[in-house]
Simulated assay, not measured.
Amino acid sequence: MNDLPSSSSPGTSHSHAPSQHGWPDAVPGNATSTRGLRRLIYVAFGVLALLLAAQWWASHNQISSLREEIAQRLKTGESLNTETKVLVKSMQDSLRELEAKVSVQENKQVETQSQQLALEQLYQDLAKNRDDWALAEIEQVLSTASQQLQLAGNVQGALIALQNADSRLSGSDQPQFITIRRAIAKDLDRLRSLPNVDMTGVALRLDSAIGLVDSMPLLSDEKPLLPASKPRNARPATDAPGGKADAGNSTASEWLAALEEKWHSWTSEMWSEIRQLIRVRDVEAPEALLLSPTQAYYARENLKLRLLNARLALLSRNETAFRSDLIAAQDAISKYFDTRAKQTQNAQALLRQVQGTNLVIEMPTLAESLNAVRNYKANP
């Protein structure tokens, strides 16, 4: 770029020396062009300043918009952060609940495993001692059956217990059980050889006798007999009219017949009334005729209780109580009830049949089977 000529101070002489490049010095008319150049420079600077201001304004607007966008994004980020914190808290709570449930499940799993181990051990013990358990069960069943046999005479129950024990032992392959099965077979033969007592039939007869008690008349219930009505004698037929003598005789005979009929009727009625007022009977207990309705009710109920006690004694095979209650019931019937009535006679016949039943049967024991089982357990 060409150097601009420097202005000299007034009063100073300008020397027109040649320039460095050998160009001649500028003429005075160049001052106008210099001023124009300066104006252009100023204009360029002004335009540049305007451009810089416009650039600054645009940058300022962009920065403001960026600030607003950043602020909006910060707000959105804060809200997202809050939601994230809430979600994190809920996830932490859920995680704690899951950890608690997992710990409970682990405890249950440990408990289940321990129970499974205990069951496996128990199964092994049962598998090892299966015969011992079977023998212990058979001993308990035989002991119970023996007690029932001795106390209540339950032969059928003892037979069922022995048969079950024999079938239980037959399922085992132990040859040592042969001795026990032999003892059980002997006890079975002993029970089957016992005489059969018809306990059901005797109990049914007693029930029938109990049912007849309410219909049996008491001695105090007897009512006077009603007089029997006799037909009047028919009047004799008259003969055909044959004369005045025959007519007079027939009239006299009719009068005598009517008089005789009235006399017989009056005497029979009087005798019937006298028979109803006075009756002679042979009664062993006079107080039986004087029972009040309340006492009659208790007499029937006491007889029923006697028969029920006899039934219980029959089922328990108590021979003494059975006989005693039957005798007391028969005495009560003979004392308070009318033995001429059909119901009373039927009840007495039933009691005589029941009294003929023999309950005294010597019951065998199951000692041989029990001893065989106990000896095997003591010396396996």
Rank of each mutant, 00 (worst) to 15 (best):
M1E: 10
S9Y: 01
G11H: 15
H16N: 12
A17F: 14
G22W: 02
G22S: 00
R35Q: 09
L37W: 07
A49R: 07
L52I: 05
E78M: 04
L80E: 05
N81D: 11
S90C: 01
L98E: 06
Q115F: 06
L119T: 12
K128G: 00
D132Y: 02
I138G: 06
E139G: 14
S143K: 08
Q148N: 09
Q148T: 00
L151E: 14
A152V: 07
A158F: 15
L162V: 06
S170W: 03
Q174E: 10
I184Y: 07
A185C: 04
R192M: 05
S208H: 13
S208L: 09
A209H: 03
I210H: 10
G211N: 11
A234I: 07
G243E: 10
A257M: 08
L277M: 09
A285I: 03
L289M: 05
P293D: 13
Y298W: 04
L303I: 00
K304L: 12
E319H: 09
D325F: 06
I327M: 13
A328E: 14
K335W: 00
D338N: 12
L351H: 04
V354H: 00
N358V: 01
P364M: 00
T365R: 08
T365W: 08
T365G: 12
L366D: 06
V373R: 01
P380T: 12
